[in-house]
């Protein structure tokens, strides 16, 4: 394997290994060590205390709740992003397509914090939506559940991560030959039949990739929950922060390990089912 390509990829591979893989191993190993209350540090003695602590104080429900929010966010993002990607790929001219894609990335020009905060102005008791609803007369009291609720958190998450689903979807649509859609039509299929039987199955790698991006990022998000969620709302990363504050490293690392195993499992299953790697075969831009 002494090809030039291998040599070129080597530095990047090493960096990825060093910055990504090594910390993961450290986290995995330390999660099984023992916390020493005397020194506030860890001792290299095998212990399952961290994992046992996950089951206490409602931590499981925070993990499940976070994954649930991430799942909902990713599902909504795919549902909204798919038609958007179709519009960019099938309807827009080249120039409009570029413009639309640029628009999709605009949210990234502001910080998460500011973006999340701006949702308060939209969803709050005196926010845009409540104001409009009362003006039109649909409600006479402002709706309370719009802000500081799971609803608000999901709105914030969807808005933050929508672009991540659109790009893999467009990528997968570019790989569908237009003549396949014409052939389906030629054989009598209308729009919905072609969508269901040809376009959807051929873009499932993109759907899953987009879903996964959003799922992983939403599962690890903190800002949206802190800014938009209710008083009791928590998220995995918020919880880990709290645990770190009392320097219980084994517990923090045990939570991280559990979450990572779940995510890796998801990626593995997804790759087996949807041939994720195929999305990048013959990649051109």
């Amino acid at each position: 394997m002494k090809s030039p390509g291998f040599l070129l990829a080597l530095p990047t591979a090493l960096i990825v290994l060093l910055l990504g893989f090594v910390p993961l191993i450290v986290i995995l190993v330390w999660s099984f060590w023992t916390w020493d209350p005397a020194t506030y540090w860890i001792r290299p003695e095998f212990s399952l205390a961290g994992y046992e602590a996950i089951l206490e104080a409602g931590r499981w429900s925070v993990i499940l709740g976070s994954l649930g929010k991430a799942f909902l966010t990713a599902t909504i993002c795919v549902a909204i992003g798919y038609p958007a990607a179709m519009a960019v790929h099938f309807l827009a001219s080249r120039r409009t397509a570029l413009l639309l894609m640029a628009l999709f990335t605009i949210p990234f020009f502001t910080s998460y914090m500011i973006r999340a905060f701006s949702w308060r102005l939209v969803l709050g008791r005196n926010g845009l939506i409540n104001g409009w609803l009362m003006d039109v007369g649909i409600v006479d009291q402002p709706l309370d559940w719009l802000l500081f609720s799971n609803f608000a958190v999901n709105v914030g998450l969807v808005a933050s991560y929508l672009p991540f689903v659109i790009f893999p979807l467009i990528l997968s649509m570019q790989r569908v030959e237009p003549s396949l859609l014409a052939a389906s039509q030629d054989l009598g299929a209308g729009f919905w039949r072609t969508f269901r039987s040809v376009l959807l199955p051929l873009t499932q790698a993109g759907i899953f990739a987009g879903f996964l991006f959003v799922f992983v990022m939403a599962a690890g998000s903190a800002t949206e929950v802190q800014m938009l969620g209710g008083a009791a709302a928590s998220m995995i990363s918020v919880m880990i922060n709290d645990v770190m504050r009392v320097v219980n490293f084994p517990l923090a690392f045990a939570i991280s390990t559990v979450v990572m195993i779940i995510l890796f499992g998801l990626i593995y299953i997804g790759n087996r089912l949807f041939k994720l790697t195929r999305l990048f075969e013959g990649f051109t831009w």
């Binding site: 030959e177 003549s179 396949l180 014409a182 052939a183 389906s184 039509q185 030629d186 054989l187 009598g188 299929a189 209308g190 040809v198 051929l202």
Partner: peptide, 17 residues
């Protein structure tokens, strides 16, 4: 096209992969 009594063999064949 989907309502016409014609069918096509496309230049790139367009077989559903």
């Amino acid at each position: 096209a989907n309502r016409r009594p014609s069918n096509t063999v496309f230049q790139d064949l367009a077989l559903f992969p």
